[in-house]
Design a protein around this nucleic acid. Sequence first.
DNA 1: GTCTATATCGCGATAGAC
DNA 2: GTCTATCGCGATATAGAC
Lengths: 218, 218
Amino acid sequence: MNSRTGTAGRKSELTRKWILDVARGLFNDHGTSAVSTNHIAAGAGISPGNLYYHFENKKDIIRALLAEYTTAYEDRWAPTADAGENLATLRENLAAWSELAWAYRFFEREVLALVRVDPALRDSYRETYARRVGQYVAFGEQLEAQGLLRAPAPPGTIHDLAVAIWLIGQGWLPFLDVTADPRDPRQVARGTDLVLVALTPYLTTKGRRALEDVAQRG
Amino acid sequence: MNSRTGTAGRKSELTRKWILDVARGLFNDHGTSAVSTNHIAAGAGISPGNLYYHFENKKDIIRALLAEYTTAYEDRWAPTADAGENLATLRENLAAWSELAWAYRFFEREVLALVRVDPALRDSYRETYARRVGQYVAFGEQLEAQGLLRAPAPPGTIHDLAVAIWLIGQGWLPFLDVTADPRDPRQVARGTDLVLVALTPYLTTKGRRALEDVAQRG
DNA sequence: GTCTATATCGCGATAGAC
DNA sequence: GTCTATCGCGATATAGAC
C-alpha cells in the first residue's frame, strides 16, 4: 500500500518470491486446502506475521501464483507467424509446456474449484482461457490458409477443436498424477499423444508430414 | 459396525440418504472445503452428533457420494452390443450423462484434488476410470469391426482416443461452470460438440450417417 | 437413532516490540 | 522487514443423556 518501490523494495521482493516458491511446493504436494498460512511460514522459515506483511491472505498468494504461471507461459510462447514451423515444433512445445505445468500442477488440479470461490481469480482465468483458445484458433486458421488442414471443416469446427484440445491439455497432467507416475518421461510423451489424437485427423498429408518432421530429425 | 441390518435399519438408511442429498447440494454450491460437517448437519436439520452417528467424517461422506455416482452411472449405461445403434443414440446419451454429471458436479470439479488426499477414494476412482475407458475402447473396436471407423488407425489410436474423450467428458462441465452458464441447454449441446469434434473425423461416411440419424429424426 | 454439551485443536489474522 | 504473542473463531469429534 504505502510502498514506494525504490531500491528499498529489493529485500521485500526476495522474501515475497521465496514465500511463493515454498507455497507452490506445498500446494503441489498437499493441495491448497491442506496447507495453511502457518505451514507456509514454517516451511519458509519465517514468522506468520512476516508472511502477512507480504500477503493479505492465502487467496492473495494463490492469485500471485496464477499471475506467475501465466507470465511464465506467455514469456515462453510468444505466438509466431508460420504455422508450418509451429507444427514441426509442436511436440517439443508440448513437452516444454508440460514442464511448466508440472511446476504449477496444483493449479491444473484445482483451478476450477479455486475460481469458484475467488471472483478475482476467476476473472484472470477466464481472460487467460480466452486469449489462449484465441491463439489456438488463430493457429488453426493459419493451418487452413496454408493447406495443412483438411478442407471441408464446417464452421465452428476449428473453435470446437481448440476448446477440446484446451480441455485435454488442462486435464491430462493431473490425470496422470492419479493414474500413473507423471514424472515418467514416457507418460509425458503420452500426454502429447492425447493432444495429437484429436488434432492429427484434421491435418492434410502435408500437414502430417510437417508434424512428423521433427520425429525424423530427433 | 455392530448393525445387524434388519428391519431396524430402515430409518437409518433414510437419514443417511438425506444427509448425502444435503451434502451433495452444499458441495455443489460451495465446494467441499467450504462445507463443514456442521453445515451439513444444519442443512439437514439434524444435530452434528447425529451426523457422526451415520458417517465417520467428511471423507466418509464424500466416498459414499462417489459410490452413489458410480452406481447411478452404471445402472443407466449397461453396455450394449450394437455399436451402430450406440452411434445413433450417442447424442442423447451424452445429454443424459450431462444431467447426471450436473447432479454431482462438485465431483467433476474436484476429483483430482480429492483423490490425492484420500487413498480409498483414489482406488475407486482408478477402478472406475479403467472400466469406463475399457468400455470406450470396446465401443471403438465394435465400430471398427462394423466398418464404421476409418481404416488405417495405428495401434493404440483407439485407446488414446478413448482417453482423450474421457478427458473432454471430465473437463467440459466444470469448465462451462466457469466460462458460461452450464444450465443453458445450448451450452450442454456444446459439450456434446466437443466430444464429437474428437470422434467424428475417425468415422467413415457410414458411421457419420449413423451418428446423424437421430438429428434427422429429432 | 437422536440430541445437547463440550473438549481439543489449529487456522486466520492482528498488535506491538524490535 | 521481521519477530513474538495472542485473540477469536469455527471445525472435527466424542461423551453421555434421552
